[in-house]
């Protein structure tokens, strides 16, 4: 097998924010992220945000699928099936980047065909070639991406900022 160590940047912990013209990208470290699936989860979670809904507060819930939500900074829950819903802790599984600044949306449009004119019940989409969960929170945009792909997303965002 070929040693490709030199071909790949060593992943950083992304603690230093990335700034470009009209955008700043910072990493948000959540206390908890939980996947909850149930047939009636959306009925029970009326505030679960899709696109272009705005998630509010420190603790918020995003709609992922017809029967699944992502709870961010919610209460501690036990993993498994409790007779009503399936729960999995995914706190370390999704890295969160927050994009602030007047050109935040312009940056996102580099990686996805997205606009407020195309609303979507689910917050999951493909952006920059990766599967991400994208939501608005207050005046910012938040991207949740699989931890294993966070380096790829961050590098893409950094590249795009230089071209904007």
């Amino acid at each position: 097998m070929r040693d490709d160590s030199h071909k790949w940047d060593v992943p950083q912990n992304f603690s230093a924010p990335l700034a470009g013209p009209g955008v700043t990208i910072s990493r948000i470290i959540p206390d908890r992220q939980t996947l909850i699936s149930a047939p009636d989860i959306l009925a029970r979670t009326p505030g679960a945000a899709g696109w272009p809904d705005r998630a509010a507060g420190d603790s918020y819930t995003l709609c992922l699928r017809r029967d699944r939500v992502l709870e961010v900074n919610g209460p501690a829950r036990t993993d498994g099936w409790d007779g009503q819903q399936a729960v999995s802790d995914i706190t370390d599984g999704l890295t969160i980047f927050e994009i602030t600044g007047p050109r935040a949306m312009e940056l996102i449009r580099r990686g996805a065909e997205i606009s407020d004119a195309l609303p979507s019940r689910s917050a999951v989409r493909q952006a920059f070639g990766l599967e991400v969960i994208l939501c608005r929170r207050q005046d910012a945009l938040r991207l949740h991406v699989a931890r294993t792909e966070a380096q790829a997303l961050r590098k893409q965002l950094a590249d795009h900022i230089t071209l904007m």
Binding site: L35, S37, A38, P39, D67, R68, W81, A86, S88, D89, I90, T91, D92, G93, L94, A146, R147, T148
Partner: peptide, 12 residues
């Protein structure tokens, strides 16, 4: 409604 599949690979 009676089966749920969670891929938790990146959490672990």
């Amino acid at each position: 409604d009676r089966i749920f599949v969670h891929d938790t690979t990146p959490h672990w």
